[in-house]
């Protein structure tokens, strides 16, 4: 729950109104263009934090307008925030939507995988174009923190593009044996090969057989 901890972090500096918190979050994340969090989401999250006793809400002395609430972090909230800082963050790049599209296009035949890749590349390049343009603006304004954030985004996009190129280059191989790596069938290897394997454990057999298979089988090399 990233937004929740970020709000704790903001509150740990000083108390604030709901809309102030929304603005502070946007400034932290690099603006609406980079991470668009709706005010409603901020209010809902704040309510949950109050429920959890991490934040307490007090009415502010209104200056003629409608009454507003000021949020303040509790000691428990501070502890939660520090604990969050101390945790590592998993990248989880393997949960990839485009990958799913590509494999499904291959298995179902519902779309042309080559066209898919082309579209994806265009998309990624447009992203990259946008990111580099934005980064250029940040360089001009001297916002180093968000420049670094954009560098991260740019680098990941570059990596995605590189992967896309690799996927494109090996698309033919994937078409030949798209299912060999498919978990539901649980076949492991094509039939007939088991005769040559030593009766030892699967892992050992894999290692031994690897050298003989590598050169001929595109699915394994």
């Amino acid at each position: 729950m990233t937004v929740r901890h970020a709000l704790l972090g903001i509150l740990s500096q000083r108390p604030g109104h709901g809309y102030e918190l929304h603005e502070a979050f946007e400034a932290l994340a690099g603006g609406r263009a980079l991470w668009d969090v709706k005010p409603a989401q901020v209010y809902t999250t704040l309510a949950r934090l109050v429920d959890a006793g991490l934040v307490k809400r007090t009415a502010s002395p209104g200056d003629g307008g409608p009454a507003r609430h000021v949020h303040e972090i509790t000691d428990a909230g501070r502890a939660e925030f520090v604990a969050w800082l101390g945790e590592g963050v998993h990248a989880e790049h393997h949960r990839d939507e485009f990958f799913l599209k590509l494999v499904l296009a291959l298995t179902t035949g519902a779309a042309d995988p080559v066209g898919l890749i082309k579209t994806q590349r265009t998309t990624l390049y447009r992203d990259l174009h946008e990111l580099t343009a934005r980064r250029a603006e940040l360089v001009r304004s001297g916002d180093l923190a968000h420049e670094l954030l954009l560098d991260k985004a740019i680098m990941h996009t570059e990596a995605d593009l590189r992967w896309l190129e690799m996927a494109e280059a090996r698309l033919g191989d994937m078409v030949e044996c798209p299912l060999s790596a498919s978990p539901p069938k649980r076949r492991g290897r094509p039939p007939g090969r088991e005769e040559h394997e030593a009766p030892a454990g699967e892992a050992a057999g894999n290692n031994k057989g690897a050298s003989s298979i590598k050169e001929s089988d595109p699915c394994r090399s």
């Binding site: 980079l34 668009d36 174009h129």
Partner: peptide, 19 residues
């Protein structure tokens, strides 16, 4: 491919890892 198109890029960005 034409890659300069502000709106499409923004849309794409939402899909690619920044959300």
């Amino acid at each position: 491919t034409r890659i300069a198109g502000a709106q499409e890029a923004r849309d794409a960005m939402e899909k690619v890892g920044l959300l």
